[in-house]
Simulated scan of single mutants.
Amino acid sequence: MSLPAGSTGKARAAAPDLARFPAREDALYIEAAWLYYHDGLNQNEIAARMRISRASVVNYLNEVRARDWVRVHLDSDVFRGHRLAAQLCARYGLAEALVVPEVTQDRDAAASVARVTRAAADWLPRLLEPGDRLGVSWGATVYQMARQVPHTPVPDLTVTQLLGSRSAALGFEAEACTSMLAHRLDGQCINLHVPLVLSSKNLRDALCDEPVVRDQLAALAMCNKTVLACGTCDADAHVVRSGILSAEGIAAYRAKGAAGVICGRLIDAEGRPMVAEVEERMIGVSLEQMRGKDIALLVAAGPGRAGPAQAAIKGGFVTHLVTSAAVAEELLGMKP
């Protein structure tokens, strides 16, 4: 935590914007946070010092984190130096990898995903430079990462939605992922204001010919960096839950060798495109446009993600990887 810097010199200081400061009733939260994060006291010591219960201390610390008054930053260099990270880079030709340790020996899946997305959120701003054009995929993993990215302004940054919108009660639509990241990074947001899937190819082609849509599609083709997840091809896959493919349809493609999903498009275990019938009615980035980026950050978290991650890496869609120790070990144990 920090306090506003004082003014210097003889000029009269501008009046402070009182709206920026916490209300008086929040003083206990601030005191607990200062004692814990700045002075290094433990929760029992804080409780004794403030003459409150330890449970109250826990609540106060949780509250200041929830309000973004305090944010703990973990240096990504530490995790990039992990033994498994080095092995992944050597094995798969990655530029960099970040491996997050498992939560417990029994490997709580939800907690592991939360750790990976948090690590990715802390790392992403460090991978960006002024003038970058960042393309954003979609899905629960990307959304969870986006909402944890610290407010880190990147000058002249453009953040672009890579695929059209899909109405679904899932809470992590493509436009939400993109706009949230643009807000966190103070970037210009370019949303793709079209449906992901149209009812016919003719309608899809006509809509793509509209000047405003044509300009948006041109913008996504110019992205030099991307952040993505590679989905699974099981019955609970994102493309099934969002209604792009049926459970029967994804099973049929899986039987033919489908191993992952990138921006709604199928790839096999070698990262080669597997064109589904629905793709001629889709509006969004092509798989060819997803290759050859300066940086392509894949966030791979949760059970069943090693296979899709390997397919994405083999296909040339990934330069940087954030994952858990469990997925890293599985990747290293798979056949090349």
Results as ranks from 00 to 15, higher is better:
33 A>G: 07
97 A>N: 09
81 G>W: 07
77 D>I: 00
89 C>H: 09
72 V>N: 03
49 R>S: 15
35 L>F: 10
60 Y>Q: 10
88 L>A: 01
43 Q>T: 10
81 G>F: 08
90 A>D: 15
55 A>Q: 15
84 L>R: 02
47 A>N: 08
102 E>N: 15
53 S>R: 15
69 W>E: 01
91 R>V: 09
58 V>T: 14
89 C>V: 05
86 A>D: 04
27 A>P: 12
48 A>P: 07
74 L>N: 04
60 Y>G: 01
81 G>H: 07
74 L>H: 07
100 V>G: 08
59 N>G: 02
106 D>P: 05
67 R>D: 03
83 R>H: 14
102 E>T: 11
106 D>M: 07
99 V>R: 04
100 V>R: 07
89 C>R: 12
30 I>T: 11
78 V>E: 02
45 E>C: 03
38 H>Q: 13
77 D>N: 10
50 M>G: 05
48 A>S: 12
40 G>M: 03
105 Q>L: 12
42 N>Q: 05
40 G>I: 05
105 Q>G: 13
78 V>C: 00
27 A>K: 13
73 H>T: 06
74 L>D: 08
36 Y>N: 03
27 A>E: 14
58 V>W: 09
49 R>H: 15
34 W>S: 12
78 V>R: 12
79 F>S: 02
80 R>H: 04
67 R>Y: 03
85 A>K: 01
75 D>T: 00
39 D>R: 13
102 E>V: 07
54 R>A: 10
87 Q>Y: 08
88 L>T: 01
64 V>M: 02
86 A>S: 05
28 L>Q: 15
77 D>L: 06
40 G>K: 00
76 S>E: 02
102 E>I: 03
62 N>C: 04
35 L>H: 09
52 I>K: 10
34 W>G: 04
83 R>M: 00
78 V>K: 09
31 E>G: 06
98 L>N: 01
92 Y>V: 10
73 H>G: 01
84 L>M: 04
103 V>T: 11
85 A>W: 08
61 L>H: 01
101 P>Q: 05
95 A>Q: 15
94 L>H: 09
72 V>D: 06
50 M>L: 15
31 E>K: 13
58 V>H: 12
94 L>M: 10
76 S>C: 09
41 L>D: 09
67 R>F: 04
67 R>P: 01
78 V>L: 04
53 S>E: 15
64 V>Q: 02
88 L>E: 00
72 V>E: 10
44 N>S: 15
84 L>H: 01
94 L>C: 06
70 V>Y: 08
91 R>D: 11
93 G>M: 03
52 I>V: 14
70 V>F: 08
56 S>H: 14
